[in-house]
Amino acid sequence: MTACPDDDTLGAMVDRSLAADALESVSTHLDDCATCRAVVLAAVRGGIGAQPIADTAPVTVVERTPVSGAPSFTVGGKIGRYDVHALIGGGGMGHVYEAHDKELDRAIALKILRPELRSSTAVLAERLIRESRMMAKVVHPSVITVYDVGREGDAVFIAMELIRGDTLGGYARGKPWQQIVALYERAGEGLAAAHEAGIVHRDFKPDNVLIDTATERVVVTDFGIARTGTAGDVATGERPAVGDVKLTTTGAAIGTPAYMAPEQLAGRPIDVRADVFAFSVSLWEGLFGERPFPGTTVKAIEEAMRRPPRAVAGASVPRRVVKILERGLAIDPDDRWSALSPMLSELAAARRGRRGAWIAAAAIAVAA
């Protein structure tokens, strides 16, 4: 059976805005997946699809402008001990609000299951709770912090830290290559911490990393489809069901396949090296303004993977950095970096240049 489509894709299917190639694939998946059928049935009964969000803000990024087409069923109200203030983002399964924890007197981000899907609360609650457990297992400055998960009546929620800022992709755009690499190194450290906890993210991309613009803290988010690195989870091959890799016609981002490793696209077993590939695609895009394997469908991306990536002519990125990324982008997982940590060390050395290498060598000599 193919991998379960993300919730934005199921919502787009309900409101009949899903691209034709994706629709065929998702429909085939629904024939075999009772869980996704329950989600779609609940959406149809509730009369909802993928609600378009004007200038959609990623999870936990504060956006103060009005949000058209968004529900306001909890704004100004309370869920548990949390006062809900403003909608800041959302998708097919849930909405994210800025809220206030009265007991601890702090602002938080509150991810709440869509009320229209309450008839499938048991199914969707498990998805939310799984995401919270994945995030809570990793304690690192570059991984989003989960404070609480619970229910209030029919409402299911995750309380997490509120990051005021931008996505990594947006924040890094136009900056010098050294600064871009440094930002991605910090994101990679969070991803590596997840790997140390036995978790493969499986959906790493620039939009799933947030930047606190006041402190330039980098935070990896959205562990909703992550899996623990056990044979029973990651070793199960799942082929993505989404054909349109960039946008549905509602504007809901479903860009996962654009960053997937070949083995993940093909539904073969994966491990941390799939995240190494996704990280390499993301950093390549950040440095050169385009992905190494372009394409608007899974088929087109797989076709592009038959040719080696080419760095943009005239770019100021050193060849040493390109070589590091080319290894991370190897089609065969055995030819990639076996883990993120050594790759990050090489990127840091390349960013520091000769002076940094000389200082490191001198320090080793003194220690000896």
Rank of each mutant, 00 (worst) to 15 (best):
R291T: 14
T145A: 15
A368P: 01
T213M: 01
V26F: 07
I144A: 12
A43L: 04
R307L: 14
V200M: 05
I112H: 08
E290M: 03
P309M: 10
E302C: 08
H201L: 08
A330R: 06
G80P: 06
V67T: 15
A54D: 15
G289R: 12
R307P: 00
R320F: 02
A38Q: 13
A107P: 09
T213P: 07
G289K: 01
L168R: 10
G198P: 12
L287S: 09
I364S: 03
D6G: 06
E302G: 12
A197G: 02
R133A: 09
E161Q: 13
T228D: 14
A235D: 12
T35S: 14
S316I: 01
G49H: 02
A122K: 03
A50G: 04
K137H: 11
A350M: 00
G237N: 04
P318G: 13
P206K: 06
V281K: 04
A330E: 14
S17Y: 02
I301H: 00
K111I: 10
E346Q: 09
E196I: 02
P294E: 08
G286Q: 00
A368M: 08
P240V: 00
C33E: 13
Y147A: 04
E161P: 05
Y97E: 08
A350R: 02
P333I: 01
R239M: 07
G229H: 04
I211S: 06
E152S: 10
A258N: 02
E63R: 13
D101S: 09
A330K: 01
F157M: 07
E161D: 14
M343R: 01
G91I: 05
Y171W: 13
L183T: 06
S282Y: 11
V149C: 03
S142C: 11
R239K: 09
I359D: 15
T248G: 09
P342C: 00
S72F: 11
G356E: 02
V139D: 14
K205F: 00
R319P: 12
A357L: 13
T248S: 02
T35V: 12
V59E: 15
K102S: 11
A12N: 03
G353I: 04
S132G: 15
R306Q: 15
K78D: 15
T236D: 04
G169K: 00
G251P: 08
V272W: 01
Q51L: 09
R151L: 15
A43G: 06
A300Q: 14
D334M: 13
L247R: 13
E126Q: 12
D154W: 05
T221V: 09
Q178W: 00
P176M: 07
V44K: 00
L168N: 12
A159P: 05
G224Q: 07
